[in-house]
Structure formats: structure tokens, C-alpha cells
Design a protein around this nucleic acid. Structure first.
Lengths: 221, 221
DNA sequence: AAGTGAATTACGGTTTCCCATAAGAAAAGG
DNA sequence: CCTTTTCTTATGGGAAACCGTAATTCACTT
């Protein structure tokens, strides 16, 4: 049963609508946080008093605004929260739609649910909370399809590393040195060239510019 | 005086919060549209009955979802609305923050206001409506600063053209042919090289990959 | 119409990138 | 322990990009 909820969301307007949605679900014990640090703090405080939260609804991205923060965003917040209250349910409510990121939420961060800020988001929010209340996870199916469709080529850490370096303006011939410095195994220039060729081939690209842009849009870099 | 308002916004949650904000301003004649076409239609209908709208609050981007639409987004909507009801005030409420786009809204589309979906957006929304009610435009100052700061190099149409072609995978040496086909004047390979060098130099880049990414983030391509 | 200045284009040399092939090292299997 | 397989690295030739310079064109002035 979801009784007490914390909303971590820097956008005032988004906060308002989540609140209203919760009210429609007859949840009236709601706390707000406009910063991740504050959210973690509220959760810790609640633990001390025994009046713990049942659900955290959080955005992924929080804009810096002068107030220095330790936690840089929703992902950091999830990690921190899991340490102090592992059983707390976490629902991510964000505009982020890039497949690579959502997969991370599922697998790496083990979020209980994800709702995208989109056309029917308020309705989906209700559904998600209903599912999570019954200890089920909520990740829309079409996300998966989206993932499979777009991720024609699944990038390895190595691939991302190379592309990141390229995007930073590192010369292709200088990449081996960078990799060796970080102790990454395949560091030969030929290996790099081969990987780049394979990726471009798989995605139907001809130039590195396209590859870099694609990874950016995908959220891989 | 703002009496009757139309909200064009596909996100259910955003729609809810705008509604609530309007209620706090004691505006209770509110109509909603989840599609641009529907928004235009509602405005036209209101004109026929004489019960016209005073303000349109619109997002910029509307997601396609099966229902085929003529107007593809907020910018199209503004153009269409100006034709049927030129004096209607238009306030753009969007997550878009790229300087190039906001400048377009100011100058090209002649919007009456812009509020970014951000930390204090609900408060800014109220301010904006107040200003527009007094026939003043509302574009936050920091937007301008942002513009000036980031736009270290101001790209010409020619620059954008080149970078777009690069981003599409066109070989640098093939760009002259593309430009000639579109009747663009400087089409020599040297001119293209020179431009690219100047841009990279101005922005402290060394590779085209960086340039392409930068333009993408800026919203220039 | 000729001269001047700015811009565009053409050209050559160097570096980087691309691609295929071969040599070498590590892992798998008998 | 040796062979086979697979992966990584090395090498070289050719294409593209980079960079400076010279020639040409174009616009504008007188």
C-alpha cells in the first residue's frame, strides 16, 4: 500500500501535476523536494522518526542553479536512497526517452517503474503507482520495442569509449595512447579502425560525424 | 484583460499544471487542445461565434501518435493562428531552451512571450500572463545572456548548410557539387575548408565531429 | 574601360584516415 | 605440450582531409 510519497522534481509545474494526480488516487501524505540532496535528506529524516516513505517519484535531470548539490541527478539519488532505505519503491518520471538510458534504469539502477512525460503521462502515472503498490514493476512495453528497433547496433563500453574520444576532438591515431593510459585492452589502431568500420557499416553510415551524432541522440555518450 | 485562454499541449501533466496556474489567476474560461490542428480549429470556431480567445498558451513540440495532423508543431500553429486571428496573444511554454530557437520565436514568429519549463516555471507563467495582459512581451533576460554567451560564433546559413551536409555523411570533397546543385554561391572546396577552419578555430575545436555535435546541441541543425 | 581590392577558386605538399593483408599473441581444444 | 582458432597488432598503399600559397574571378570605383 502506498501511503506516503516524496516527489523529487525541480520543475514547479511538473510537481503540481504529480501532486494533483496523487490526490486523485487518494494519497494525501505528500512531500516535495526541488533538489536531490533535499530529497535524500527528507527520506533520511523520515527513517529516523519511523514515518518512512513508501514511494519516491523522481525526475532524472535537475538543473544546477547556484545551490551547490552533492547529488547531481535522479540516478545519483536512486543510488543514495537505496543505501539508506533499500525497500523504498522508486518511480522515475521524466521526459527522457532514450533507450539506452531507460535500459539503465531497468537493469543497473533497478528502478521500480518508469513513466515518460508524454501525451498520457498522468494516466500512466496512476497505472504505474497501482502496479508498484502491488510490488510489480512498471516499464511500458513500447519502450522495449523502441529499444530493439533503434538499437540496431548495441554499443559496447569499448565502442562508447572510442566515440566519446572522437567527440572530444581526439585524433583517431592518438586514441591508442589514450586507451593504454586507462589500461583498456584492445588498444591497437587497427582494432579501433575495425570497430568504427563495423559500427558505421551496421548503421549504414559513411562518416564518423554521423556516428557521433547518432550516439548523442541515443544517449550513449 | 485575459479572460479566455486556450492551452495547446500534448502532455497531460503539463496541461494540468497550466490549468491550475490559470485558476490561481482567476481565469476560468479555459479550453484544452492536445493537438495543434484541434487548437486551430477551436480558435476558428470561437471566432465564428464571436466568443474569441484572448490568449493561446502553446508548447512547441507535439508528438505524432497515429492521428494525422496538418500542423506539425507550435511554430506551425502560431503561423496558422496569426492568419485567422492576428491580434491573439501567444505565449510559448516549452522545455526548449536552445538560443537559436528562442530567437526565432522572438523575431521570426513574433510570439508575445516565452516561458521555459524549468525550476520556477509556474511562477514565471503567472508573470508572463500578467505582462502580456498589459500588451508587453515576456522574454526572460537570462535567455538573452545565454544566447550571447553560448553563441560565441554566429553561424551563417552557409555554415549551417555545410555542417548539415557533413552530418548527413556527405564527403567534404563532394560538398561543392551539392552546393552548386542548389545554386549556392561560394561552392569551391577551398571556401568550404576555410569556413570549417574558421568555425573550429573560433570555438576551440579541432575536429568536425565536435562542430557537428555543437551545432546539434545548439539547435542549429 | 582599366584599376583596385576582396573574395573565390585552383593547386601542391603534408597529415590523417581508411582498408586490406599479413604477422604476432592469446585463448581454446585435443 | 602442441595445434588450431581467434583476436590483436603491425604495415603499406590509396583516399580524403588539412593547410598554405598562387591564380582567377567578381564587384566597385574612377
Amino acid at each position: 500500500m502506498i501511503r506516503k510519497v516524496l516527489i523529487a522534481e525541480d520543475h514547479e509545474s511538473a510537481n503540481i501535476s504529480v501532486q494533483k494526480t496523487l490526490e486523485e488516487l487518494v494519497i494525501d501524505d505528500i512531500a516535495y523536494a526541488y533538489y536531490c540532496d533535499d530529497a535524500l535528506n527528507k527520506i533520511s529524516q523520515a527513517l529516523k522518526t519511523g514515518d518512512t516513505f513508501d514511494l519516491l517519484i523522481t525526475d532524472l535531470y535537475f538543473e544546477p542553479d547556484g545551490n551547490k548539490q552533492i547529488l547531481s541527478g535522479g540516478m545519483d539519488l536512486i543510488v543514495a536512497v537505496r543505501k539508506v532505505q533499500p525497500e523504498l519503491k522508486v518511480l522515475v518520471f521524466t521526459a527522457e526517452s532514450r533507450p539506452a538510458i531507460i535500459e539503465q534504469l531497468r537493469n543497473q539502477y533497478d528502478a521500480d517503474g518508469y513513466v515518460r512525460k508524454a501525451r498520457n503521462d498522468a494516466r500512466q502515472l496512476k497505472e504505474a503507482i497501482g502496479e508498484i503498490a502491488q510490488h510489480r514493476r512498471y516499464f511500458p512495453r513500447d519502450t522495449r520495442q523502441h529499444t530493439d528497433k533503434k538499437n540496431a547496433y548495441s554499443f559496447s563500453d569499448f565502442d562508447i569509449r572510442i566515440i566519446t574520444l572522437l567527440a572530444q576532438g581526439v585524433l583517431q591515431k592518438d586514441i591508442p595512447a589514450h586507451l593504454q593510459r586507462n589500461g583498456i585492452k584492445p588498444s591497437g589502431l587497427s582494432s579501433i579502425e575495425k570497430r568504427l568500420s563495423q559500427m558505421k557499416d551496421a548503421l549504414g553510415f559513411t562518416k564518423n560525424e554521423q556516428l557521433v551524432l547518432y550516439c548523442k541522440e541515443l544517449g550513449a555518450i
